[in-house]
Design a protein around this nucleic acid. Structure first.
Lengths: 226, 226
DNA sequence: TTTTAAATAATAGTAATACTATTATAAATA
DNA sequence: TATTTATAATAGTATTACTATTATTTAAAA
């Protein structure tokens, strides 16, 4: 029997828990596939309904709108990343080694995780790179934030910030450096593939180079005050 | 008589040059105001037409669609920033002083520039912070890029990358560090105001702190190999 | 000057999107 | 068995993002 990994989700993100029914799981599974295929702007609940073989109203029973669906997916992703970080840094003593591990996890593409049957993490990772910031770059950020929609992202930022402080207790910008790592792991990847002249890895297109850049950036800041 | 500053724009971004008529200038002026007011998603050409006192088709004679209008505005902004950087670093010899000046320019809010009558740079700066990345985080990036829509952003990145190399000729990631500065100057500002716990400046909300963080980040990377 | 053509503007449409409201059907409980 | 309750399907609507057609003005040619 397989172990099922469950990410705890904010209930205000959905009308009906998609993890509680076959249709719900299909919405997530095919939703990820279609956003990956079309991009978030061109993706619609109608296309999703047709893809699954249900009606538009069927989707609306689970998610109030497209935006909340995106926030749901990105939240799930950040929760999953947090879990991965916990798992992969569990036995590590040296905080610098831990931090390097975190950077690698954030900047590497991902194999589909068998523990989560209806979520393709590999596609979701790509979606978060291209669409993730659209979850908060909206006019409703403040209201969404009041409902704690961005808690998983904040938790991750806090976790990474704490590892940074373990490395250099006197460093003054742990949280800002954490968001810099998170966002740049994704942006440099996006630029590398789509606007290569904005990076120094346009030729090789190697994730390892993004990782090297981030390591250099982060440990230059931390080493001098260690 | 006033000097008029003109930013050279990619002609593929518009159907008819908006700088060449009163209606065109009004589209830019009121477009900036309305995107600032509503956010890009809620902003429509119909609202813009009503605001100006023309018809929807009137706008479509100038811009093919909303997306190209956003790309136009962000291009204009990056061109203007490039001009500002040239202007403010003109007489500076020391590249480190130059780079500090650039960081300050990117991370500071802006006063409206009198040289450009129909563009409110202060509002446009806020728009680029919240909406700027939506110009390239789309499914059409590759085609848009082929038409050189992102040249002003790339030019700016190259300019900053060169200043970085002046500081430290052996630094390996000048372009990636440049995009990190540009993006983080904006993201840290957005987070500071909307998701403050993602930064270390949530309490004070001081732009000077963002600047200090970026200076620390950049010069830590550069100093050690100077 | 008159005619003609080219450019510009206004009007009226349309397909698609993002929903909502209503009605129908099935399952669970009294 | 009757009756809530939950779920699903159908049909609708306002708005969006455009396009096509017609009208008007301006400019150039005859």
């Amino acid at each position: 029997m397989k172990l099922q990994l469950q990410i705890k989700m904010n209930e205000a993100l959905y009308l009906r828990n998609p993890e509680g029914s076959e249709l719900g799981k299909n919405i997530i599974k095919h939703g990820i596939q279609l956003i990956y295929k079309y991009g978030f702007e061109v993706f619609t609940f109608k296309k999703l309904a047709e893809d699954i073989g249900t009606t538009e109203a069927g989707i609306y029973r689970y998610f109030e709108n497209k935006h909340k669906f995106l926030v749901y997916l990105t939240s799930w992703y950040w929760g999953w990343v947090e879990y991965q970080i916990g798992f992969h840094t569990n036995n590590l003593k040296d905080p610098a080694v831990k931090l390097k591990r975190v950077i690698k996890l954030l900047a590497s593409s991902i194999e589909d995780d068998e523990q989560t049957s209806y979520v393709n993490e590999s596609l979701l990772h790509q979606i978060v790179i291209s669409e993730g910031s659209k979850a908060y770059l909206t006019r409703q950020v403040n209201e969404d934030n009041k409902q704690h929609f961005f808690k998983p992202y904040k938790d991750l930022c806090a976790t990474i910030g704490n590892i940074i402080l373990e490395c250099s207790p006197k460093y003054k910008y742990p949280k800002s450096l954490a968001t810099t790592i998170i966002e740049m792991a994704h942006f440099q990847n996006f630029f590398m593939y789509h606007l290569p002249s904005l990076t120094d890895f346009g030729k090789s297109k190697e994730e390892t180079e993004v990782i090297a850049f981030l390591n250099d950036l982060v440990f230059s800041s931390l080493k001098k005050i260690k």
